[in-house]
Every structure is written in C-alpha cells, then in structure tokens.
Design a protein around this nucleic acid. Structure first.
Lengths: 141, 141
DNA sequence: GCTACAATCTCTAGCGACTAGAGGAGCAAG
DNA sequence: CTTGCTCCTCTAGTCGCTAGAGATTGTAGC
C-alpha cells in the first residue's frame, strides 16, 4: 500500500469529496500539502488521519472553528484536556438547546395539524394559526 | 391609528427588521408596495397581516418556499385545505427527523464527555473518539 | 510518439435566510 | 438652515460546502 497519494486517493480513502478536501485546506483545517512538479497535491497517511478526524467531528456536528481548535489541542499531547472537554460540553449544550427548540416547534405544528378539519381554506385552522400568533401554546417562539 | 406607514413603521409593528422586509419583497413573499413621490415604500394594514403570517411561519420553521405556497393557498378561501395540511405534515416530518438526528448526536457527544478523565490530551478520550469513528455507538452518522 | 480520456488545477458563483455596511437622498424638528 | 433620522439601492458577508468553467497534467492503449 502506497502511503503517498493524490487528492483523489485521499478522497476514496476517507469518503470526503475532492472539492471538500480543497475547501478544508482553504479554511485551514488541512495544511497545504507538498506538490508534484506538475502542481498536484500529494498526501501521506497523516493527512488521512487528520481528515478522518475532521470528518468525524463534522458528522458529530462540530463547527469548523471548533474543529480547528480541537486539532490544535490534539497536537499538544502534554496539555490538560480541560479545553477539549469544555469545547465538547459547549457543543453538547448547543445540540441540547436545538433539540429543545425543535421539540417546542413540533408541539405547535402537531397542534395545528390536529386542529385541521379538512374543510375549506376559509375555515382552515392551520392558516388561521399562522395568521394569529396568540393562538399558540407558547408565545416565546 | 394611521393605517398607512413607511417601512420603519411596519418594522416596529411586526418586529421584523427593515432589511428583512425588503428581503421578503425581493423573494416574492411581500408584494411590491406603492411608493411615495420620494420613492419610499408605503404599507397598509394588509401588509402588516401578511408580514405577521410570514414571520410566524418562519418562527415555526417553515421555509420560504413553503410560505410562498401557504400564502397563495390562503388567498383562495374556497379551496380545500388538503394542500395546506400536506405542507404542514411535510414540515412536521422534517422537524421530527431533525430531532431524531440531533438526539443521536447528543448521545454520542455525551458518551464522549463522560469518558473524559480530565487528564492530558495524550490520553484524552474525546480526541481519541474523534480520531476513531469505530469507537462510536452507532456507525451511521 | 500520439491520441484519448481521466484526474487535477484555479477561480467563480450558488445555496438559504438573512445581516451589515457604503454612499446618497428625503424629510421633519429645532 | 442645519442637524439628524429615516429611507433608498447596491454589494458583500455569513456557513459549509457544491457545481461548474476552462486550463493543465498524467496515464493507458495503440
């Protein structure tokens, strides 16, 4: 197995699309790799690991800025991982509040749909609810 | 109470920012209003209602395309509201699947954080988990 | 060596739903 | 009359990519 590959090889190994890899380079998640004489990017297995890390963090919903920080931290093995923990907790908090918000929306929309009597639009409870916020269970959205 | 107002008045009455109102006009959610001689937009109470409808639907997470459809339907009171019902159900489905996905992420991130022993990054379970997808509970994210 | 064709390069623009800012004109109050 | 607010249009930025144009490089078959 060759441990040096072009961008297409890296793409196949990680499942990350070629333009996305270039994008990650442009935003500083991946370092600019060596190039061939013909100006093509050459990657080694370290790049594979790093890209898998990025990909996995993205799948878990971490934002690019957070991933940049995580990558920096990962390169300083002797440091305390308190910062890493904090970043993860921050992310967890963001996920939790998104879930809460969506759940509240779900309740409202479900209520709207249940009220629908499948009649004419003139009497449509859904249209009506959308027109009048005060019909909502919660005012805070 | 004057029933004709400039864009700032409409903004104050609905809580929608001025540039957002102009944006809604540009994407066809609000019709182009009459103008004064000095080229300023003039709105009436119908615009207030329509904007409140838009705003409320947005707060409930409906996308602009769906809102455009809902507004068209709302203008045809004699039609059956089956389409409205379908749009709402579609939206509910989207909310539900977003919640499911986020809940799965939450479980993973919580697991990661719990595994953290607050030591050095070299042994950090969070960094480790991010590096190795196979440590995850579910493979499908 | 020559010819296809695939892979890669850079650059620009698009998505959705706004938001921010520049630079200029209109308008009411002091 | 001038200050200061509101309004106008236009452009560009946000986020994380994705799609495409047009040019170049590399490779496989003949």
């Amino acid at each position: 197995m060759s441990d040096v590959m072009a961008i297409g090889g890296l793409s196949r190994k990680t499942g990350v699309k070629v333009p996305t890899i270039r994008y990650y380079e442009s935003v500083g998640l991946l370092p600019a790799p060596h190039r061939t004489e013909g100006n093509r990017r050459l990657y080694d297995t370290k790049a594979v690991d790093r890209l898998r890390f990025i990909r996995h963090a993205r799948e878990l919903g971490f934002e690019v800025d957070a991933i940049r920080e995580l990558l920096n931290l990962a390169e300083q093995p002797q440091r305390s991982c308190a910062k890493v923990d904090a970043l993860a907790r921050e992310h967890l908090q963001a996920i939790t509040s998104r879930i809460e918000r969506l759940t509240a929306l779900k309740v409202e929309v479900e209520g709207m749909i249940k009220a629908c009597t499948k009649g004419r639009i003139a009497k449509c409870r859904i249209i009506d609810t959308l027109s009048h916020h005060e019909h909502c269970l919660h005012r805070e959205h």
